[in-house]
């Protein structure tokens, strides 16, 4: 009764499925079209905005895996986002200053190569998610929400007060990290790279959702007892999902750091955790493309409402309240239809 249905499963309710797939395709093409169109007309800044949407959508996709499919309300996903960002920032910092990160037990140097940074960021995110998940998953429901929130704050305060990497000031990356064969400083090339990653991540999640693991994850959301009856420990399934989710969100964080060429503790703040949840509810929880729809809508609203009033968050709050109370399927639910839940 909690979260929504998964549109990735290709069985049953044919007409609706087709419609949902059309909406998904339209969203993906819309983002790509927007980015390319802005580039063609010389609106470089709009390309940057579209890149931001894609990156936030990757972060939301990571959260969607545990929230939409696993039913875990993590209120601390900014932690992985920020850790990913700091991984990118710290690796680039050492590479640009020609100082090794540490020399013992093995020499570990910084790097400005995006693929390496992504892998390290995902490993860091996965590790943090494993530790936090192992502790948090001992609890459920409202405890889980508060504990993930509190762990997120712990990392936030640590980042603020640990002076080595800029503390509250954050850490600038003077030159955007590189990807073999691309000029990442060119906004459109970076945009294409990010969109390709977004599609890869969404593809991976669609695949996971259909796999045995995905079914077990949904079962864990709906009925833990039944899962145990068939010999699967729900805790283990949820923890694995949590770790994958942390890795994906960290990847988004690394990209976000490169987009801004800067990382600061604000990437770790609980407001960001809340905003990631908001993307999903705006988009329609549990649907594959919800993060993209939600992130796009959020960024568009920020700029449209922001153009009208400096107090746009007030109106945004009203809108969000309305969606939660009265339109629970989110944007995709509205466009694609689908089973009413709740």
């Amino acid at each position: 009764m909690s979260a929504a249905e998964i549109t990735a499963a290709p069985t049953g309710r044919g007409g609706r499925m087709a419609r949902a797939q059309i909406v998904n395709a339209a969203l993906a093409l819309g983002l790509i079209g927007f980015g390319l169109g802005a580039w063609a007309t010389g609106e470089t800044f709009l390309v940057t905005l579209a890149t931001k949407v894609a990156i936030l959508a990757i972060a939301g996709a990571g959260l969607n895996l545990v929230l939409g499919f696993g039913g875990l309300v993590s209120f601390g996903h900014a932690a992985y986002f920020g850790l990913g960002g700091y991984t990118a920032g710290i690796l680039a910092h050492h590479a640009l200053n020609y100082t090794p990160m540490f020399e013992w037990p093995v020499l570990f140097e910084g790097t400005t190569s995006m693929p390496v940074i992504w892998l390290v960021a995902m490993a860091v995110g996965a590790l943090a998610a494993a530790v936090i998940g192992a502790l948090s998953l001992r609890t459920t429901g409202v405890y889980f929400i508060m504990i993930t929130l509190a762990f997120g704050q712990m990392i936030f305060y640590f980042a603020i007060s640990w002076p080595a990497y800029g503390g509250e000031d954050g850490l600038p990356i003077y030159v955007r990290n590189g990807f073999p064969g691309l000029n990442t400083l060119d906004p459109i090339q970076f945009f294409v790279l990010v969109v390709a990653l977004l599609l890869a991540v969404l593809g991976l999640i669609a695949m996971l959702a259909r796999s045995r693991f995905g079914l077990a994850l949904q079962a864990a959301r709906q009925n833990r007892q039944r899962l145990m009856a068939v010999g699967i420990r729900p805790g283990g399934v949820l923890l694995v999902a949590f770790v994958i989710s942390g890795a994906i969100t960290a990847l988004a964080g690394a990209l976000y750091a490169d987009l801004n060429r800067f990382v600061s503790p604000s990437m770790l703040s609980w407001h960001l955790s809340g905003e990631l949840l908001v993307f999903l509810i705006l988009g329609g929880t549990g649907r594959l493309f919800a993060p993209l729809a939600g992130a796009g809508l959020y960024i568009a609203l920020e700029h449209l409402l922001g153009g009208v009033s400096d107090h746009w968050q007030f109106f945004f709050g009203l809108l969000l309240l309305g969606v939660v109370l009265f339109a629970r399927g989110g944007v995709i639910g509205f466009l694609a239809g689908g089973r009413k839940h709740g």
Binding site: P172, Y174, N260, S264
Partner: peptide
Amino acid sequence: SNLAMAVVPG
């Protein structure tokens, strides 16, 4: 300063 560090080098 933290905003300056984010903007000025770029």
